[in-house]
């Protein structure tokens, strides 16, 4: 990878200031995406701002009917957290299915959500559970956060500090893995909270994670696999590549949605 200057601020304020004042600066969370990207020279930041020494970014706590997860909490810590497992087991299961054990020991929820990879798992959970993304400047609803491929509403000097997940009454995530990369070829997160039902899809949309509103409407009548019978999604706007055509992904979305509802 290209050379860079390494900074390790002790506060979120310091990290934000580094982003604002340093030329071509990038935050380093767990580094499980950024470092491989830099090795491939697809990213060449001049300044790396390591968040690992900032206190309080790794906490997982309960605040009323919400589970609040610090941006630097690793996938392994979310997967093994008793609070998450007891209150939002679907989220713990999702975290435990990312990458492999060594990657889960380093990769973070904040890094994943800020990167918004179209095949990442976490965006599906954040959007389906109607989570709120807290930054050093403001609170963003999931619906206004994700803004297309590798794009979010975050400003240049904005740092995610934590993500608050309301507890659903029912939820499940089902992922169809690419047999080689093990990334989600299609992943569907289904969540029911009161009358609010959400179905989100990752891995398939050419614009990143999205809500499947027809499935949400069908499930609102009755939260049952039967409600999805005959329902299909158009292949237009879905990714096609050597791994799967848009039509195959459309088919998988319907299948994984039914499986998620059955599992929820």
């Amino acid at each position: 990878m290209y050379a860079f200057t390494y900074l390790r601020p002790g506060s979120v304020r310091g990290a934000s200031k580094a982003l604002a004042t340093k030329e071509n600066a990038k935050l380093l969370a767990g580094g499980q995406t950024l470092l491989p990207t830099m090795k491939q020279r697809l990213a060449s930041p001049d300044h790396i701002v390591d968040l690992s020494q900032i206190d309080d970014l790794k906490n997982i706590e309960q605040k009323g009917r919400r589970i609040v997860i610090g941006a630097m909490a690793t996938h392994a810590s979310v997967a093994s957290s008793a609070l998450v497992r007891d209150n939002i087991p679907a989220l713990a299961a999702l975290a435990g299915g990312i990458g492999d054990p060594a990657v889960r020991h380093r990769g973070t929820i904040g890094g994943s959500v800020a990167n918004n990879d179209p095949a990442a798992d976490y965006p599906a959970a954040v959007l389906a559970l109607g989570a709120t993304i807290h930054t050093n400047k403001r609170k963003l609803a999931a619906d206004e956060f994700f803004a297309g491929l590798f794009t979010t509403a975050l400003e240049e000097d904005e740092v995610i500090t934590k993500i608050a997940f309301p507890m659903p009454s029912r939820a499940a995530y089902q992922k169809f893995r690419n047999p080689a990369s093990r990334y989600a070829l299609v992943g569907v997160f289904v969540a029911k909270r009161g009358r609010d039902i959400r179905v989100t899809v990752t891995g398939a949309g050419s614009n990143g994670v999205f809500r499947w509103s027809e499935a949400e409407a069908a499930l609102s009548k009755r939260f049952s696999v039967k409600s999805l019978e005959g329902l299909s999604i158009s292949a237009s706007g879905l990714n096609g590549d050597i791994h799967a055509s848009p039509e195959y992904r459309a088919h998988l979305i319907a299948v994984m949605t039914a499986r998620a509802v059955a599992a929820a």
Binding site: Y6, L28, Q32, L35, P36, A102, H105
Partner: peptide
């Protein structure tokens, strides 16, 4: 390249020495 950092298995090709 797996080693243990603070008791956890990590891939030492995907972590900076400075981390």
């Amino acid at each position: 390249c797996v080693v243990h950092v603070d008791g956890k298995a990590v891939k030492s090709c995907t972590i900076l020495a400075s981390q």
